[in-house]
């Protein structure tokens, strides 16, 4: 569909206003928002993710696209909610947090934007989130994926603490844990018993799909 192609191009060309306008038009025209997400938002997110991976675009562009993806997917999600009043159209539920003692949230916010674009329901607990609060929220919200971010080598051990506390609370088997952030590595993720690791936001969204066997 031409209009969805146009929307995809607006997103990958960083045209925020234009993308928003087209998305609203898509809704007015009565096009299925689920189809619109698949054909514009997810495709744009994949293209941008690939470009970032190849070094063709940089963090600055990724932040801009992250904002646009968030805005456009919100428009479509709202439309889906109003029409069908169901949440079944999500791929799954993701809870995100930057661990306690760490206020850095740029990477975590990008992960949220890309996960949303891929079709997950994202609940972002923010930054500097105490371990107990994360456990409480996992209990309450029953997410499929828990994403834990840490920028500092000094706060990274909190990722391990959360996993241990999940075990103690008998919740470890209910949720897949993905860790990320500058000092983390795949080996670190294995050592602390996480289910997955990703080095950037598009990678984290891919990993989430892989863990839920959706890709």
């Amino acid at each position: 569909m031409e209009i969805l192609e146009e929307l995809k191009n607006a997103i990958i060309n960083f045209e925020a206003e234009k993308a928003k306008k087209i998305a609203e038009e898509v809704i007015k025209k009565g096009i299925d928002p689920n189809l619109a997400i698949r054909k514009s938002v997810i495709e744009a997110a994949n293209i941008v993710g690939e470009k970032f991976e190849k070094g063709e675009i940089f963090l600055a562009e990724l932040i801009i696209v992250g904002d646009i993806l968030k805005g456009v997917s919100n428009i479509f999600r709202e439309a889906i909610k109003q029409k069908m009043e169901n949440k079944a159209s999500y791929l799954g539920r993701v809870v995100l947090a930057t661990v306690e003692g760490d206020i850095h949230d740029i990477g975590k916010n990008l992960v949220g934007a890309f996960m949303e674009a891929e079709g997950f329901e994202v609940i972002d607990l923010g930054a500097d989130v105490p371990t107990e609060k994360i456990i409480e929220k996992v209990k309450e919200l029953k997410p499929d994926i828990l994403g834990l971010s840490a920028l500092l080598s000094t706060t990274m051990p909190k990722q391990q603490e959360v996993i241990k506390e999940l075990e103690k609370a008998g919740l470890r088997d209910t949720v897949r844990v993905i860790v990320g952030g500058a000092p983390t590595t795949e080996e670190w993720a294995r050592t602390i018993g996480a289910d997955g690791w990703a080095h950037d936001a598009p990678g984290a969204a891919k990993k989430a799909k892989e863990l839920l066997q959706l890709s």
């Binding site: 675009i57 940089f58 963090l59 600055a60 080095h199 950037d200």
Partner: peptide, 12 residues
């Protein structure tokens, strides 16, 4: 730069 690359393009 960050852990894996530059904040912005070399051109910028």
């Amino acid at each position: 730069g960050h852990q894996r690359g530059l904040f912005f393009s070399p051109e910028i």
